[in-house]
Design a protein around this nucleic acid. Structure first.
Lengths: 117, 117
DNA sequence: TTGACATATGAACAATTGTTCATATAATCA
DNA sequence: TGATTATATGAACAATTGTTCATATGTCAA
């Protein structure tokens, strides 16, 4: 940050900045939260999560539903697995995916409700 | 999508796929929702929104708070303005930013609560 | 055991995005 | 008026990311 990026002392509301800084959740929480949002920032993944909230589906079903390749679908499922948001059970050749819990879909629902207004 | 990406008819649960497809919110809603999440997928923007939920702040304050340059801060504020999430009032040289409404911060709060568990 | 199938995954590529740098605008002050 | 300050913004660059392609693994049927 160059000196041109520092405000004159008078124009900074130091009190407010200090207060805001203290009020902020700690860095780790912020990073975790924005990481979650980033994962939700892809239509494909939102569709997967929404679909799985109604019923379990195999990779094949999901690819079909999304109009995506198996490979792309599998890659996206890995992202969701890494977040701990989906789990799967293997049955023969097939892998049936489902949600680990409902809270992510609650977030999506909340956002949909607002978007529909 | 090549033919290698098509499942055999038997392995697709066509009934489930059809049901899931119908249950999905329409494409526009999905896109709008994931666009919102994408914008929330940056720690910097989450910090800005969270800070503004407590009090209005000028660009200078925000840059100071974030440890970012004025330019970077201003660019991020534009993104938030484009989403309609923040507004500002000009007072002399200064631009004081504030939230247009509370709903986005509610989403963030909800996510923070879960992240803290 | 061989071939077909469902899924997983690394590498490469194209597209997107956040930051920086340079510059523009508008307001204040000397 | 000319200098300084607060903010905005376009262009360029680096980093990140989603998809595709090629290939690997494990299962089932013949």
């Amino acid at each position: 940050m160059s000196s041109a990026d520092t405000c004159s002392v008078e124009s900074i509301n130091q009190e407010a900045v200090k207060k805001a800084k203290q009020g902020l959740p700690n860095e780790k929480i912020i990073l975790r939260v924005s990481e979650s949002f980033k994962v939700l920032g892809e239509p494909t993944r939102v569709k997967i999560l929404f679909s799985l909230s109604k019923q379990e589906l195999c990779v094949c079903d999901l690819a079909n539903l999304l109009g995506a390749t198996h490979s792309a679908t599998s890659h996206q499922l890995r992202v969701l697995r890494n977040m701990g948001w989906v789990k799967f059970k293997k049955t023969g050749k097939m892998a049936y995916y489902s949600l680990t819990d409902q809270h992510i879909v609650n977030l999506i629902d909340m956002s949909i409700k607002h978007a529909e207004e």
